[in-house]
């Protein structure tokens, strides 16, 4: 069976530091894949390679068998990769609706169609009451939703979520989880980076654990957290035996 996304021996170094070395894993259609690992494990670097923001030094990333690595973010977005950012990036001189319209213009030239698309996506993301609000006035969780809505407006096949739930209160995080579930139910495959394990583990179908730029292990979330190497990576050698 062919996979939706194949990450094939991807390596990337920044000034002598290996952010990613020889990373390989596959993403299945319709799943929620969690990318976990301690700080500096190379999760965001990998996101940047998948979304086309940076070009891997070696290796290849394929979407439906077509190489997307090294072809730039615009091509990746056109082919169906959308993302959110670890530090929220909203277009602050625009309203919420206008922000999302920028995304919708990835698929249409018509302002009317872009507006309709943006409105329906905002409705989906639970922001329909904030359509005309300037983006910079949104609360942090609303800004996260805006980023998701904007990404969805590009009609992606895969959505990359970079720490979307980090820094939210438990209630806000639960609302975020529900949104992610809804996105998946709409047929979009999700890869997410997250630190908040107790929120992440019940949500994801599979986990890939990165450590020091390498894949430590992958598997079901319940399995990987019991894996001795994972415990060692997070907590140190003393806890691995426990």
């Amino acid at each position: 069976m062919s996979h939706l996304l194949e990450v094939d021996k991807v390596s990337k170094t920044f000034g002598g530091v290996a952010a990613n070395s020889d990373i390989s894993f596959n993403v299945h259609q319709g799943e929620i894949l969690g990318l976990i690992g301690p700080n500096g494990a190379g999760k965001t670097s990998l996101f940047n390679s998948i979304s086309g923001e940076v070009e891997p030094d070696s290796g290849e990333i394929r979407l439906d068998g077509v190489r997307i690595s090294g072809r730039g973010p615009v091509v990746c977005a056109r082919l169906g990769i959308a993302r959110t950012f670890q530090v929220v990036r909203s277009f602050d001189s625009m309203t919420v609706l206008e922000n999302v319209m920028v995304g919708a213009f990835a698929r249409t030239n018509s302002p009317g169609k872009a507006m309709k698309k943006a409105e329906s996506v905002l409705d989906f993301a639970g922001l329909s009451g904030r359509v005309d609000t300037p983006a910079h006035l949104l609360s942090p969780p609303e800004k996260r939703r805006l980023e998701v809505a904007r990404a969805l407006a590009t009609e992606p096949r895969i959505l990359l979520l970079d720490e979307m739930l980090t820094g939210l209160t438990p209630t806000e995080a639960q609302a975020g989880v529900q949104l992610i579930r809804d996105v998946r139910a709409s047929g979009v495959t999700i890869i997410m980076v997250e630190h908040v394990m107790e929120v992440l583990l019940p949500l994801i179908d599979r986990a890939v654990v990165l450590h020091l730029g390498k894949v430590l292990t992958e598997g079901l979330p319940t399995e990987v957290v019991r894996h001795p190497d994972v415990i060692r990576a997070y907590l140190g050698d003393r806890y691995a035996a426990a």
């Binding site: 979304s51 923001e53 730039g72 973010p73 615009v74 977005a77 056109r78 959308a82 993302r83 950012f85 990036r89 909203s90 277009f91 602050d92 001189s93 625009m94 206008e98 920028v102 995304g103 213009f105 990835a106 904007r150 990404a151 407006a153 590009t154």
Partner: peptide, 16 residues
């Protein structure tokens, strides 16, 4: 306007 506000975000939304 997207380019003005945030180039990286603009690119990620297929803005050339």
């Amino acid at each position: 306007r997207a380019v003005k506000d945030d180039v990286t975000a603009a690119r990620s939304l297929a803005v050339r």
